[in-house]
Write a protein that binds this DNA or RNA. Structure first.
Lengths: 205, 205, 205, 205
DNA sequence: AGTTAACCGAGACGGTACGTCAAGTCTTAAA
DNA sequence: TTTAAGACTTGACGTACCGTCTCGGTTAACT
């Protein structure tokens, strides 16, 4: 008696309908009003089918977001580190806005109560993007845009932290100008010294 | 005909019992398992009394945390900015740890779905502390520890952001050493240039 | 410390307002939706004032109905017993119709659960009217319209019973013709024998 | 999309437990103290299950009484009409006594406020018994015990009315002797005239 | 190709908590 | 001292979802 169902017999149509319904209903009514019952009804699927394959509402949404987000929010590489970061961060901000109907924000909220979901969220959604960020930063270091001896371990926190600080305390997502300022200041921790005050300004070209 | 009850007639003993029960039960079972019913039972109070004075579970906990947190997590002033920040941030980290039983984390999670609660959380809990942080930073600026022309508007995001980035993605709160590194890097954006690697040490004067 | 309030200090204006509000609200929304709170609000009186003077909602309504009904539904005396009974019964039917907004029907329903109210209802409202009925019947006996040896003890049950049978089982109150038939048949038990089949018909004059 | 649940899937064990608990609790504490919560708890069933199948407490009790009463209070046929009626009415009286714990009395009280319940009560409980009574009366008519031209339409009101008159006004149910008198007088409306005082005795044939 | 075990939809079920309502008690301030 | 106002405890209301379960039916893997 297998405790986990046989994935070979899984109905792909049901799976897709469930993930689609989850995202759609989340966008329509907000993550807070999203329920397993509504997902089942919206997908034309029985609750049992959802519980067979996912342990919780959060896990469903995580799968749905994972599908969705695998291509968005990649790190571009134009050579201008600050600009590239701003581009990528703008995509992240789009995923978090508006908070009330953002599936990602819903996942974040639920993960704060649910360690298992939090771990999944970190490993499946966040970790790959942190790795990508780090690769981009090391590339910039090799390019000479960052100090050769910069401690990049804290970079991700300094660069992305402000977004989540503002998110959790309803301080408003930064607009383009504020984003510019934030990135500039964050990168200042890693640029070669001595430097002038405008080292991270966008190229004037 | 006032839609809000007359605060003059409010029973202070009930109010205190409710707030105490909310914090106690949150610490015992976690914010996620906290219910209005349990608070009422734990406080020896009727549900009606809770609903009369607060619109939601989050509002109760916000009041409770507000009472509690009004004295903790003040900004010390020893003259060593980085050390003072680390001290204060350690207090903040204590309020957020462990996440599963932290009332503040619970509020943060709920505020992500509930804009009204989020606004209250910001105005009542966070704004005063941001102001205190800013006062401390401007003091440091006047003390010559920060660049005279530093743009301190982004400072709070750079300093505290990493904490919330780590919180929401289950990356673990920084230990003492990591906190040291984080603060040092964050402040680097505001210190006078050029600088050496120990720019954040307390003034030797 | 008197357990009963001093009736001398009773506020007559409040008493009237309460009884009037009770009847008005009962007529408007039905006895089932009548509440002490609504009566208090409708009378501009505090709940405490109601509870001070009456033990229950039913007692309030009983007082109100008692005031109201003391003059209606008297027994006329035209000499035609059957006609007189029909006249009086039509007044009773008016008090019971429509059942959903009739204060008397509400009292009857509540008295079925509440023995104290039931006893009050019987003694204050019903008993005097039974006595009046019996006086009317004995008068008819003296007038020679009923058998001299008729057992009038069961008369009230036979005459009025059909009304309450129909009331409690939603069989519809009798219309004028049905009322005629009912009274005629009921009185047949008390008329002198031998008799013909139309002895109780109304006088043809 | 049916608004009523599919009766085929109904759990018969739950249904029985609910009806049994309703009758038991009504007998123990009285209809007035009977609650849906208590029925659910007493039946080991969730409230939702009750609300799924019945619209109100009264509907539950009506079902329970319907089950119970389908065999009691049938009309016997010994040939002696008055005796048969007394037998059957004694069974009815037993169902109504004591009023405070009688499910039927509770239903009657509730039906006075609730037209839908009242209609159900009439159609499901009362109408079949009225029909049975009428059949018995017509049989007696064919047997020559009632006048061939008697208007039996009012018979049920005359015979049973006294019971409900006495019930609603707390006048006490008739004892055996009073019942004898009541039935005798009621039937006098339908016997052939002239008659003697023992007209309701069984035929001597 | 037929058997059979699993998935599937549907949705009833026992629960827990919700937010509301009214009952009846108690406190305060004004008259 | 009574009253209006209204806060309070209590307890039931009817609803919403939860996560589990059983029911036929279909489907897909293995005889």
């Amino acid at each position: 008696m297998p405790t986990t169902p046989n994935p070979l017999r899984r109905n792909e149509a049901s799976r897709r309908a469930i993930l689609d319904a989850a995202l759609r209903l989340c966008a329509e009514n907000g993550y807070g009003r999203l329920t397993i019952e509504a997902i089942a009804a919206g997908a034309g699927v029985s609750k049992k089918t959802i519980y067979r394959w996912w342990p919780s509402k959060g896990a469903v949404v995580l799968d749905a977001v994972d599908d969705l987000a695998s291509t968005v929010a990649d790190h571009p590489y134009t050579g201008d580190l600050a600009a590239d970061l701003r581009t990528q961060m703008a995509a992240v901000i789009a995923l978090l806005t508006p908070a009330s109907t953002s599936a990602v924000v819903g996942l974040i909220a639920e993960a704060l109560h649910d360690d298992a979901l939090g771990d999944d969220l970190r490993e499946r959604l966040v970790r790959p993007r942190i790795d990508a960020f780090n690769r981009r930063m090391h590339q910039a270091q090799r390019d000479g845009q960052l100090a050769a001896d910069a401690d990049l371990d804290v970079a991700v926190d300094l660069v992305y932290g402000p977004l989540y600080h503002r998110l959790v305390f309803h301080l408003g997502m930064p607009n383009a100008e504020q984003l510019h300022t934030l990135v500039a200041h964050a990168l200042r921790a890693f640029v070669p010294a001595p430097q002038d005050n405008d080292a991270n300004a966008p190229p004037t070209s």
